[in-house]
Amino acid sequence: MGKIFFWIMVALAVVSGFLFAPEHAGLVIHPMDQFEVKPLFGKGEIGTFTITNVTMWMALSVVATIALLVLSTSKRATIPSRAQSIAELAYGFVYKMVEDVAGKDAIKFFPYIMTLFMFIVTANFLGLIPASFTTTSHIAVTAVLAMLVFLTVTIVGFVKNGAGFLGLFWVSSAPLPLRPILAIIELISYFVRPVSHSIRLAGNVMAGHAVLKVFAGFAAASAIIAPVSIFAITAVYALELLVAFIQAYVFTILTCVYLKDALHPSH
């Protein structure tokens, strides 16, 4: 198993070395080119409804989600196939997370959280295909995801608890003179949430992909550095596989934590 994995990684490193490499020799690295938003057909302006590589890779995310959760479960087998096991694992993973972190009354938000998780996890993994486009590396995308969570949590908090939701900022267990100061800190940290929530995801994904590209550039530059560089690509790629999942997990679990604050604002 380990050996197979090792050789797959080596093969991936070689392939990605070729694919990520610039067309011309010399140390010319464009690590950010991979993040460019381009129209899929023609070279016109990018309007709101233009079909771009963003459209394509997001559509592939949808396809991956359908393949993973719908097609794999089409047999509804009591003894699951491997694909169905993965679908059940993903379901159980997020369901348990929502239940454990946000509480039983948060279960009605499960489809919503599962949507976020499936989108991020499929986008992250699709982005690891050499020469692909990673939608979650864009701050525009992650900021919208984070704002969706932020707005939902804030609205749910006020609808569920009314003005009691403000108790989230009033640390009643602290000494009275400290409470206004803590309230300001809590308030700032509350509004920083969507920023950190979105930048964490986009930053991690973007950084890893840029590093891959930089190493690929080194590999293309010189035959002496190439082996070292390809090894580095292999290692970083393995790390990126981990990051792709962990960042989706972190985003989802933070969503659950914020949701718990909205449902139970007391400290």
């Binding site: 409804f49 233009t50 963003v54 997001m58 559509a59 976020l116 989108f119 525009a140």
Partner: peptide, 10 residues
């Protein structure tokens, strides 16, 4: 563009 297609996707 990104936000529009993200909304559609989600």
């Amino acid at each position: 563009n990104q936000i529009f297609w993200l909304a559609v996707t989600l």
